[in-house]
Amino acid sequence: MFDFLEDYDLLGAFWTTVQLTLLSAVGSLIWGTLLAAMRVSPVPLMRGFGTAYVNIVRNIPLTVIILFASLGLSQTLSINLGADDFDSINFRLAVLGLIVYTAAFVCEALRSGINTVPVGQAEAARAIGLSFGQVLTLVVLPQAFRSSVTPLANVLIALTKNTTVAAAIGVAEAALLMKEMIENEAQLLLISAIIAVGFVILTLPTGLILGWVGKKVAVKR
């Protein structure tokens, strides 16, 4: 029943999914943290940019963002992110698109975490002479991250599944392989089930482990 699988690189495809997920997760965590810092900064221009970015980007379908990265950036503007073969160009563009999109959600998850930090924490930090940046990086964000672990886990799970959109620009990840297998084999249900189980194997531990971590690092007040 599973014989046909020998003709396909199932593990390889899921490995690409994992790579897309991890690189985009790191990138969007960094960019999302910067956006969150902007959204709580005392500088109106930065606050405005952060708010505008989040409200625009999170309301654009991911497919549109990824297709724009491929058609707009690569094919029209020849921005190829330092790669020259088709596969790595599209892989990098997909990561870029996923970062741009996911960062908006990371920003909001972190901002909800920042809101759980009592105002007094920042006031006490300012009162001992810490600068705005120090207040944020030494006192507010460490506590915000701890209470954002659970919402960030949701973002990570969504990101893992969103990597399937990269199939739209031909990145050889799990969903593209699924499409290819369905076209070639008469095993629609089985193929869908295999891919679905593969994603559950990736995301279920993410949720469980991060849920546990979230409880463990929670700040006691």
């Binding site: 007094g120 006031e123 006490a124 930090a125 009162a127 002479g129 006192v139 460490p142 701890r146 700040v219």
Partner: peptide, 25 residues
């Protein structure tokens, strides 16, 4: 005004709050 100068001044002024505000982490 808000900024580096103010931070330096605040370091010279100790403050104790009603709700303690110790850094919880």
């Amino acid at each position: 005004q808000e900024g580096r100068e103010l931070a330096r001044l605040r370091a010279d002024v100790g403050m104790v709050f009603q709700s303690f505000n110790l850094f919880a982490h």
